[in-house]
C-alpha cells in the first residue's frame, strides 16, 4: 500500500481532490434531499463508520492522507477502529472504551476551544 509520506506535491493534490469529492457527495445530499446540514453531518459520520467496518476507510487515508482524515467520516472510522483495537487488546472493556479513547484528543480540543471561544468572542450575527 502506497502511504502518504509527507509534503510531496502529489500528497496535497490527493488530499484536495479526495477531500473535495467527499464534500461534494455531502453537498449533493444536502441539495437533493430535504435533510438539513446537521442531518447530513450525522449521516456522513455514520457512513464513515460503516465504510470503516468493511475495511475501506483505512486504505483511503493511506491514499489521500488529510483528504480522508479531515472530513467527518474519519470520525466514524476512528471510533470503529478504536473500538476494534480496544476489543483486541482488552476484550469487552476495550470494546466499550476503545472508540472514545481513539477520538479523545479531537473531542477534548473541540470542547476546550468551543468553551474558550465562547468566553473570548461574542457572536457577530
Amino acid at each position: 500500500m502506497d502511504t502518504v509520506t509527507g509534503l510531496g506535491l502529489s500528497s496535497f493534490a490527493k488530499a484536495f481532490v479526495v477531500g473535495g469529492a467527499i464534500c461534494v457527495l455531502a453537498q449533493l445530499t444536502l441539495d437533493l434531499t430535504k435533510l438539513t446540514g446537521a442531518h447530513v453531518m450525522v449521516l456522513f459520520v455514520v457512513l464513515g463508520a460503516i465504510v470503516s467496518g468493511f475495511g475501506l476507510y483505512e486504505p483511503l487515508i493511506a491514499f489521500a492522507g488529510a483528504g480522508a482524515a479531515i472530513p467527518l467520516p474519519a470520525f466514524g472510522h476512528a471510533l470503529v477502529a478504536g473500538t476494534l483495537k480496544g476489543a483486541a487488546e482488552r476484550g469487552f472493556i476495550g470494546f466499550v472504551s476503545g472508540g472514545l479513547t481513539a477520538t479523545a484528543t479531537g473531542l477534548t480540543v473541540a470542547i476546550l476551544f468551543g468553551f474558550t471561544m465562547a468566553l473570548v468572542f461574542r457572536p457577530r450575527g
Binding site: 444536502l30 446540514g37 446537521a38 457572536p123 457577530r124 450575527g125
Partner: peptide, 18 residues
C-alpha cells in the same frame, strides 16, 4: 430581530450553514 429568530427557530448565528 434576525438573530433572536435565527437562534430560536434555526441555528446559532455563527454556524456555517447554507
Amino acid at each position: 430581530h434576525h438573530d433572536t429568530a435565527e437562534r430560536q427557530y434555526r441555528f446559532p448565528t455563527e454556524f456555517g450553514t447554507q
